[in-house]
Write a protein that binds this DNA or RNA. Sequence first.
DNA 1: TTTAGATGTAACCATTGACATTACAACGCC
DNA 2: GGCGTTGTAATGTCAATGGTTACATCTAAA
Lengths: 146, 146
Amino acid sequence: MQISSRLTIAIHMLACIETFKDEHKVTSDFLAGSVNVNPVVIRRLLSQLKAAGIVAVARGTGGAKIIRPLNEITMLDICHAVDCVESGKLFHFHENPNRQCPVGRNIHTVLDDKLDKVQQAMENEMRRITMADLITETKSLIRNQT
Amino acid sequence: MQISSRLTIAIHMLACIETFKDEHKVTSDFLAGSVNVNPVVIRRLLSQLKAAGIVAVARGTGGAKIIRPLNEITMLDICHAVDCVESGKLFHFHENPNRQCPVGRNIHTVLDDKLDKVQQAMENEMRRITMADLITETKSLIRNQT
DNA sequence: TTTAGATGTAACCATTGACATTACAACGCC
DNA sequence: GGCGTTGTAATGTCAATGGTTACATCTAAA
């Protein structure tokens, strides 16, 4: 199993919105062109990012803007916004261990907090990565290419 | 997306094998009873654990044994053994960003090593959890219940 | 040497989530 | 009012998961 490409696509989108905000109106079609997916996929993600308070999308006239300071948008925020980890639990636990069996009865208790720690290690790392970092790096790469 | 229950099932199986090794022959049917899944599911996982050198399974006569020291079986080993993360990459990257677009051209470079760091944070935590820990805890819980 | 009890594995199915795509209603500036 | 957008429902395809049946194969023990 892999974490959905929704995450990398959403990051790509935000990087685009920020990079081109002064040059064009950034529509779902424009973003779809850069990411190379169907515009509907973009609009769905844009909806989710909007619901999370990360972007604003202009109906009618069109165009998306980032409405939260870049250094306050972490990769974890985006991950949550686009719902990458179902029901917030990274690990899928088998549902019905046999409670008649001493091991089956206790396995949940033993594992739950270990799995939680693993997930938290991952989330802590994601919290440290912000869109500010990502965009600074992206812009610097672009500058060196022109 | 969630990491397959193969991981938690495999851990449950190993805990059972260790806990009951002196009392019964631990067959796939017995394990299936504790985990509460079809025996074929158990046999499939047993095959993978065997291929990873973690258990030995007796054909004909039946029964599984753990053949690696418990403190040398980490959760990460099990995760790899049962193939929880496709092609070893935790994050699914969208395949074809548009290379004509300055952002599309660079997004991979910018993201790849960040995603790697996140994955490594997760794996490091998994490396710290061994079957020795898990089984000690399980046995202690069982003891307090009898 | 047969047999009983296991394992190994192929084959098939149902369900689920991802992602793509079409279609169209609603919106808001010009 | 019309044009370019967004929002979203509906539908389709594909892959992975997990369940199940079926059966060939193996080995110890009767």
